[in-house]
Each structure stands twice: as structure tokens, then as C-alpha cells.
Design a protein around this nucleic acid. Structure first.
Length: 498
RNA sequence: GGCCCCAUCGUCUAGUGGUUAGGACAUCGGCCUCUCACGCCGGUAACAGGGGUUCGAAUCCCCUUGGGGUCACCA
């Protein structure tokens, strides 16, 4: 195999990495991990992160789908230095706008004798395939074009441009590379076929477009999923044919669903679309932290801020094994990030989720900030947070009661306790937790009541739920007037059951 | 099937010839306790199998098995 200049001998250059999604209607969570590692690498090394849209499959792509990608990347905070809407010196960043470039490179390859115009029809190819299969079985067919060594075709007729795969110069010759994740990877050269560069309509195929773009955009490290491992020899042959320096390569193991199957839209219980996580109230940093740890590790550390990820990420500690999506671990990591945010920040973020519930609350409302502190210990996502904040902002008469809680605790036998507690709340002076608790426990001791017999009915009356922050904390957060009203309303409801 | 990749607790992983195989999530106990969480303490739980190499193998080599990927004028 031809020896190209080794990367190590090239002058030190700034890191240029890219993420090249295809606009399919949603941004795949597995793709995001690939993007994340590339982004982390660029940020750590002070390089550039390029976003390129691979939209040559016209039938599958839509404009809206591009916007989905951009929205998702922005939400995640994976900002790009070059690409859609920000431009850059190597644009355009949509493959559909680079068709002239592909044509020019294809011409260059044809002129240099590394590619040829193939006028074989689908029928011819099919006939050859059938003849092969008759003799060798249904697998391993490689098309040998009669046009491989001809240059007399009529260019005005429909044709494709095929790469002229070099013949092995010795039996068993391989083409390979040193992968940053997998180490040495090699494929037998004689297994490669004359793959198509340009379709009859002039649109480039993946391997060709990818090569032209990566090269002309100055990409120094190509990152992608390991499902692309088999594509790499084709792209490398293109670099080699033209004597161009190869980029470094890093293939990432797949992210599988919870059953160990390739993650797809059909995977149950696993959201593959990034924006779904946004809508479900996940934090970008929580999702990114989980994703980073899925396939990469840094000793025993589990929780990383974005800055820590940038500082600590390295290719040496990226594993080779496919990993499964674990919703529960994601929830844990996400919850940890949620709890670490300060109350004011959470206030800003939770407002849209409250609005979804029909509650208009100002992000700087002191009542909101006060309630967030205890509630965030009980939430995983912003949606959870909003749900647990709900009863603090719901009108007293619009409070909804958990059915089971109501049945169990808003019963006649507790009505008296609720009335009594209401009286205590009404008269407690000063109105604070300590005073309320002292007054309540004093009464309970006299009456021989256990806390749980008072607290649970009161909790349902005050919040409609069977779980909430501490009783006295909740009362203070609600305020004297609303707490009393809710307790009395609860007492009335309890009485009415009879 | 050909080719390629992979293989440590249920899951994510640490481990790079000598460790009681560590951590995290989950799970199971316990503490805290007015509920639910948070937090804290503790337990169960893994080197796929077989051959080598070596004084010594989770670590190196081979085979088997298992899993995954890919075989387009999709990406």
C-alpha cells in the first residue's frame, strides 16, 4: 500500500473537527455524543468546531429538519465556529450548495486516471450480479465495470463517476489506519470495489462528499460512529490517490438502546431525539454529562461541569465497547445537575414549564425562589420541578387532590385535627417554622397524637399531594392566609365524606 | 454468509503481568424522618469458555462462543 506522509510528521496545526449530521427530522442522541467529543476536543485545544449539513439525499431531507438540528445544537450549547448561520471561510456548509466542487474534484480524479465515467445501466449491473450469484452464492458480489479502462463514453449520456480502486500489488494487501479509539484497523484491499463518487444526477455519494468536504475544510480529525468503519477505506483511498494528507480518525462505538439494539426511533423507552429531552425538562449539562460518560471515563469521576469536561476529555480514555442507554443513570446525573443550580437560575428555567401548566409566575418572584430551594431536592427534571411547584401557585379553590391521598387522609376522623391546625396557623406569632412546630407538637402531646396523623392529612389539604417538603416549611411558603384557607377547606372536604 | 469491530458486576466503567478486581447507577438492608426526596452507612453482584506464553494473567497470543457493524447511484 502506498505510504502517505504520516500525520506525526506534519507540522503542528490547530485542531479542526466537524459534525456533519444529515437533516432527517431529528437530531439523534447517539450522534450528539460524537458531536460532543469533537466539540470538547476543539474547545480544549483551542481549535475550530465546524458544523456541516449533509443534505444530498434530497428525498429524505427537508428545510425544517435543518432547523431542528440547529435548535438542538444551540440548546445543548454546542456552538460551532463555522457552519450554517455563522458562515466561515470554507463555506458553503450545506453539501447541496457545494455541487460544483464535487464535480470539479470528480473531474480531477478522472483526469488523473483515478476514476472513470461508467455508463453501465442498472440492468447490466443486475445481470452481472445474478451471474455471480449463480456461481458463488448470494454474497460478496463486487461490480466490475466494463468502463473501468475506457475513456470513450459519451459524456452527454447518463453516467456515474466511479473510483478506480487500485489493484493490490501483492496478495493480501491491506488498507488501514491508526484509529484514535480502535488503534490499528485494516481492511483487505481486494475487497474494495469501484464505488460510485457521483450519481447520474451529479449529486455526490456520502463517501465522496465527505472526503471533498473534510479535505477542503481542513479537517484534521474526523470523528464518527463506528458504523462508518467500513466507509473509511474508501475515503482514505481518495486521499491516497491524490497524495493528500489524511486526517486523523476516531471512530466511536455505538450507543445501543436499553435492550442492546441499535438506537432508533423505534427504540422503546429511549428518546433518540435531542429536543425531546429539552421538552421533557432535562438540562443540557445533565444530558451532556451522561453522554460524555457513556463511552468515556476519567477515573472514578461521574459528575462533570461543562468546563471540567473540556479540561478533562481525552481520546485515550474513550472505550471501544458499545454502550447501552440507561435511563436511570441519566436521571441520576441529570438530577445532580439540577440540584447544583442556584435557585435564581432554576427560577428562570422553570417558568416555561409552569406556564405549560397554566401558571404565570415571574422568574424573580420571591415566592418562587423560596419554594424552589426545598422542592429541587425532590425533582429530576424541570418538568418535575414545575409539577412540585404547582400547588404553591395554584388558586386555593383550583387545587387538585390526589385521589388516593384524599381517600386516605381527608376523612371525618381527621377533620378536627385539620381545624385545630388551622387555628394554630392562624394565631402563630411570629409566623415561622419554629413557632408553628412548637405550637403543633405542644398540642399533639396534650392530645396524644402522633405527627403522622396530623401531618399527612394536613399535607393533602395544603398541597393536594401525599408528598411535599416538610409540613411547617410548606405552611410558611404558602403564607398564613392560604394555609389556613386550605386547611379549612380540607376539613370541610373531610367532613363531607361522611 | 464475506469482511470488520468488540467482550470486567444487571448497566456505565476503573484496571495496561503481581489488587481482598475499585467507583457510579440500579437493587437490597439500615440511619435520618410528618410524606417524598436529598444525604449518610452497609450488603449482594463481574473478569464468556478453552488452550497457550510466564515464577505469576482480567491484563499478552491463539481458538471457540456471544454481541455489534457493514456489504446501495442512503447517510
Amino acid at each position: 500500500m502506498t505510504r502517505r506522509p504520516l500525520l506525526a510528521r506534519r507540522p503542528a496545526m490547530t485542531v479542526r473537527v466537524r459534525f456533519a449530521p444529515s437533516p432527517t427530522g431529528y437530531l439523534h442522541i447517539g450522534g450528539v455524543r460524537t458531536a460532543l467529543y469533537a466539540w470538547l476536543w476543539a474547545r480544549q485545544r483551542g481549535g475550530q468546531f465546524v458544523l456541516r449539513i449533509e443534505d444530498t439525499d434530497v428525498e429524505r431531507n427537508t428545510d425544517d429538519a435543518v432547523q431542528v438540528i440547529l435548535d438542538a445544537m444551540r440548546w445543548l450549547g454546542l456552538d460551532w465556529d463555522e457552519g450554517p448561520e455563522v458562515g466561515g471561510p470554507h463555506g458553503p456548509y450545506f453539501q447541496s450548495q457545494r455541487l460544483d466542487l464535487y464535480r470539479a474534484w470528480a473531474d480531477k480524479l478522472v483526469e488523473a486516471g483515478h476514476a472513470y465515467r461508467c455508463f453501465a445501466t442498472k440492468e447490466e449491473i443486475q445481470a452481472q450480479r445474478e451471474a455471480y450469484e449463480k456461481e458463488h452464492g448470494s454474497k460478496g458480489f463486487r461490480f466490475r465495470s466494463p468502463w473501468r479502462d475506457r475513456t470513450d463514453g459519451d459524456r452527454t449520456q447518463p453516467h456515474v463517476v466511479r473510483f478506480k480502486t487500485p489493484e493490490p500489488r501483492e496478495p493480501g494487501e491491506k488498507i488501514g489506519w491508526d484509529d484514535l479509539v480502535y488503534g490499528r484497523v485494516e481492511y483487505p484491499l481486494d475487497q474494495q470495489q469501484d464505488f460510485v463518487l457521483l450519481r447520474h444526477n451529479g449529486l455526490p455519494l456520502y463517501n465522496f462528499g465527505c472526503f471533498v468536504d473534510d479535505h477542503t475544510m481542513g479537517i484534521t480529525l474526523v470523528t464518527r460512529g463506528d458504523d462508518h468503519l467500513v466507509n473509511t477505506p474508501m475515503q482514505l483511498m481518495l486521499y491516497d490517490a491524490l497524495g493528500l494528507p489524511r486526517p486523523q480518525l476516531a471512530h466511536l462505538p455505538m450507543v445501543l438502546d436499553d435492550r442492546g439494539k441499535k438506537l432508533s426511533k423505534r427504540s422503546k423507552d429511549v428518546g433518540v431525539a435531542v429536543l425531546d429531552y429539552r421538552d421533557a425538562g432535562y438540562l443540557p449539562d445533565g444530558l451532556l454529562n451522561y453522554l460524555a460518560r457513556l463511552g468515556w471515563s476519567h477515573g472514578d469521576e461521574e459528575i462533570f461541569t461543562r468546563e471540567e469536561l473540556i479540561a478533562k476529555f481525552d481520546w485515550a480514555n474513550v472505550g471501544k465497547t458499545a454502550s447501552r442507554w440507561d435511563k436511570k443513570k441519566l436521571a441520576h446525573v441529570q438530577g445532580t445537575h439540577l440540584r447544583r443550580l442556584d435557585d435564581a437560575d432554576l427560577g428562570e428555567r422553570v417558568v416555561p414549564f409552569l406556564r405549560q401548566r397554566g401558571l404565570e409566575v415571574a422568574p424573580n418572584d420571591p415566592r418562587l425562589l423560596a419554594a424552589i430551594a426545598p422542592v429541587k431536592l425532590r425533582a429530576t427534571t424541570l418538568a418535575d420541578l414545575a409539577a412540585d411547584l404547582d400547588y404553591f401557585f395554584r388558586d386555593d379553590d383550583a387545587l387538585e387532590y390526589d385521589e388516593k391521598g384524599k381517600r386516605k387522609f381527608l376523612k371525618p376522623e381527621f377533620a378536627g385535627n385539620l381545624e385545630r391546625l388551622a387555628a394554630i396557623v392562624e394565631s402563630a406569632e411570629p409566623f415561622d417554622e419554629a413557632t408553628l412546630e412548637a405550637a403543633t407538637t405542644g398540642w399533639m402531646e396534650e392530645a396524644g397524637l402522633a405527627m403522622k396523623h396530623v401531618a399527612q392529612p394536613a399535607r393533602v389539604a395544603l398541597t393536594g399531594r401525599t408528598r411535599s417538603p416538610g409540613l411547617f416549611e410548606t405552611i410558611v411558603l404558602l403564607g398564613r392566609e392560604r394555609a389556613v384557607a386550605r386547611l379549612r377547606r380540607g376539613a370541610a372536604l373531610a367532613q363531607a365524606v361522611a
